[in-house]
Design a protein around this nucleic acid. Sequence first.
DNA 1: ACAACAAACGTAATAACATTACATAGAGGT
DNA 2: ACCTCTATGTAATGTTATTACGTTTGTTGT
Lengths: 131, 131
Amino acid sequence: MKTQDLTRNQSLVFSALNDAKTPLTAYAILDELRGEGFRAPLQVYRALEKLVERGLVHRLESVNSFIACAHEGASCCKHGLTGFAICTACGNTMEFHHHGVEHQLEALLGEKGFKPEKTVVEIRGLCANCA
Amino acid sequence: MKTQDLTRNQSLVFSALNDAKTPLTAYAILDELRGEGFRAPLQVYRALEKLVERGLVHRLESVNSFIACAHEGASCCKHGLTGFAICTACGNTMEFHHHGVEHQLEALLGEKGFKPEKTVVEIRGLCANCA
DNA sequence: ACAACAAACGTAATAACATTACATAGAGGT
DNA sequence: ACCTCTATGTAATGTTATTACGTTTGTTGT
């Protein structure tokens, strides 16, 4: 479950995301890794799929991008709903966790009989530096 | 600001979404409207852009789709944060509004100096019928 | 060591979603 | 009539993601 048992491709993709610390699209990752021998989108998407499964990487649905989890290891998903504040000016993205929001959404959806599987909370705006 | 001053293309797209009452992709709308003379994606995207501006249609970012606003008219965006619960089995999508969640997110982001512009809350899962 | 199986990989092609560029048409104001 | 702004039509292209197919690698049981 640790980063050491990643395959070569997975490690390369994960490193690219960690180095960036701003969200990257799959194709941006592909371009970064051409020097390492990457040649096709699928190499990136396959690695991303595994990394997301492990909780090492998050997908930002509203910007078609990926970002390394702000928490080392895969413990991330246990501290409440995960949300992101994405600066549209500089790309800087803040991951946050919020139990209150999680509980309120659960309560609301529970009433309606809706069973959540994946919750997306993404706020686009301007970060403190760019505002 | 009412639906009557929509152009022909905008009306057709809006009707398609209202009839569906499940989210539609831009290309699905295009296919529905070929009988009305639509020939290119841009005709749909241009209409959608205006409809979203007016608050008559929402874009669901996590599924690349669009849905008619559940509230007639454009008053929708005044009653708190807008969220969606999207059933991955039947496509049925419930629009909801939640002041509590809105305030908690505002508080959290305010602390960090982040200025929200667009907030995405989309929960995918199973609706009461499909669970 | 070897067969059998599963997971990961390489490559090509294609599908799905969205935008740019450029030319044309219609409505409203002067 | 002329200008301007908005909407439109059409084509081409750009961006994001998946399917299909075959090969390689790694693991397990014998």
